[in-house]
Simulated assay, not measured.
Amino acid sequence: MLIVIEVICSDPAEHQQRVTSRSVDIPDLKLPNWQQVLDHAYEPWNREHVIIDTAGQDPQASVASLIRHLDRLAAGRNILT
């Protein structure tokens, strides 16, 4: 079974702050600037998927949210037994 996970940040100000303050640890990797992020074409998913909204939460909380979603899917579909 394939589970599609979409990670978003629904708070535009927080999203912009994340984009403009991130650093890169891979030599010569060029990160997009905020305008490039805004200009990027987004195609909404047209199939069932899990959405994790990271706005207002740290990475640990986002992972916990994802695990809760996956646990619910597993319980409803008996996929992890």
Rank of each mutant, 00 (worst) to 15 (best):
A61L: 01
A64P: 04
R22Q: 08
L70Y: 04
L29A: 09
D39Q: 10
E14W: 06
D71S: 12
G76M: 11
L66F: 04
I67N: 08
T81Q: 09
V24H: 06
E48M: 08
Q57P: 01
R72L: 15
R18S: 06
R47F: 15
I3A: 13
L38T: 03
D39A: 12
I51E: 15
I3V: 15
V24E: 14
A55N: 02
L2N: 13
Q60F: 09
E43K: 11
W45H: 14
P32D: 05
Q35Y: 02
S65H: 10
I67C: 12
I52M: 06
V63W: 02
M1P: 14
Q57L: 07
E43W: 08
E48L: 11
Q16T: 09
P12Q: 05
L31W: 03
Q35A: 14
G76F: 00
D28M: 11
I52G: 03
R72N: 14
M1H: 15
I51D: 07
V37H: 00
V7I: 08
P59F: 00
M1E: 15
D25T: 12
Q57R: 11
R18D: 05
V19M: 03
D39N: 14
R72C: 07
A13W: 04
T81A: 13
E43S: 14
P32W: 03
L29F: 06
S10K: 01
K30D: 10
R77P: 00
I8C: 02
D58T: 09
P12W: 01
P32G: 02
V63M: 08
D28K: 14
Q60K: 14
C9K: 06
V63P: 04
V63E: 06
S23K: 13
E14F: 05
D58H: 10
V63K: 00
I8F: 00
L2Y: 10
H69C: 12
I79N: 04
D53R: 00
E48W: 13
R68W: 07
D39V: 01
S65L: 11
